[in-house]
């Protein structure tokens, strides 16, 4: 019960063996991940309820997202998960150089992920594709420059912003008649993704277009909260990196690296679900 003379420095006083401490730490981390899962579970519930009841909103909304950027980010995050797993492996084997290298690589991939996210966000913000009452989509985007956005305080019967000479690929739908009071919105067909125009199921598409701000609410909150978790994970990885550089870890003590890894993989798993749910809607 009392402090054994061989009590290792990393073993807290109230644990009897390193193994007890290790398992407690692991269980604690898994429980923490449970709270994260339920935190995101609320968001997935929000998503599921709206998608089940208003699928047309999602059909209309996802066209503004860039599949290739989303796919790129998925791969970046998977690779970062691999490097994190390799970092844990290096820590288990006591290979400090490899540990530092893999942690640094994970950190860089995370930066890369955020960089792509920044590009995506800035496109959306520039095009006014913001949630709720901030949803003020630019009429269209041309190669030469932007058409001015209709001012937010325009009276309801104000004419829509003048349409530029048709920059969309042939087959882009004509704005439906009487669309002046609906949000003035045309998919950014000339955007990076060069998506096919919406299908001709006009009624559903029109209803979806009217409520597409709901999609961007979900998009920004879900990816935003995920992005915050990426940033938190980066802080953890940086902390692990500096501890590893000071030689804090050894083949008999690498619990923090393992726990950081668990957290990072969960961030990856959540993105694995976000990607098809937000970008790949059929």
């Amino acid at each position: 019960m009392s402090h054994a003379p061989d009590h290792p420095a990393h073993l807290a006083h109230h644990y009897e063996t390193p193994r007890q401490q290790f398992e407690a730490g692991k269980l604690g981390m898994w429980l923490f991940l449970v709270t994260e899962v339920l935190l995101f579970g609320g968001l997935f519930c929000w998503y599921a309820v709206y998608r089940a009841n208003q699928p047309e909103v999602f059909l209309a909304g996802h066209r503004y997202l860039d599949k290739s950027l989303g796919g790129l980010n998925t791969i970046v995050l998977i690779v970062s998960s691999v490097t994190m797993a390799l970092a844990v492996r290096a820590a288990q084997l006591g290979n400090r150089r490899a540990l530092l290298g893999f942690l640094a690589a994970t950190f860089l991939f995370a930066c890369c992920f955020l960089g792509v996210k920044y590009v995506e966000y800035s496109h959306k913000i520039r095009d006014g594709l913001l949630p709720g009452r901030h949803f003020q989509p630019a009429a269209e985007k041309t190669g030469a420059g932007r058409v001015p956005v209709a001012p937010a305080d325009a009276p309801p019967d104000a004419p829509p912003a003048p349409a530029p000479a048709d920059p969309a690929p042939a087959g882009a739908p004509a704005p439906p008649p009487g669309a002046a009071d609906a949000p003035r919105l045309v998919p950014s067909a000339a955007g990076p993704e060069g998506l096919a125009p919406p299908p001709t199921r006009e009624v559903a598409a029109e209803a979806g277009r009217k409520s597409v701000h709901l999609f961007f609410g979900i998009y920004f909150v879900m990816t935003g909260l995920h992005g915050l978790h990426v940033i938190a994970g980066m802080i953890v990885i940086a902390w692990l990196f500096f501890r590893a550089r000071r030689g804090a870890f050894s083949p008999s003590y690498w619990l923090p690296v393992d726990l950081g890894g668990l957290y990072w993989h969960l961030v990856d798993v959540i993105w694995i679900f976000l990607f098809p749910l937000l970008y790949l809607i059929h």
């Binding site: 009897e16 063996t17 390193p18 193994r19 007890q20 290790f22 398992e23 796919g71 998925t74 791969i75 998977i78 690779v79 998960s81 691999v82 797993a85 390799l86 492996r89 288990q92 084997l93 083949p251 008999s252 619990l255 990607f275």
Partner: peptide, 25 residues
């Protein structure tokens, strides 16, 4: 028994799973 239970994942398994994930994406 007092030491933590360690399982070092083989390198090839980790890389293989990583590759599989990218393929599935």
């Amino acid at each position: 028994a007092a030491e933590p239970h360690v399982h070092v994942v083989p390198l090839r398994l980790l890389l293989g799973v990583g590759a599989l994930l990218i393929v599935l994406t």
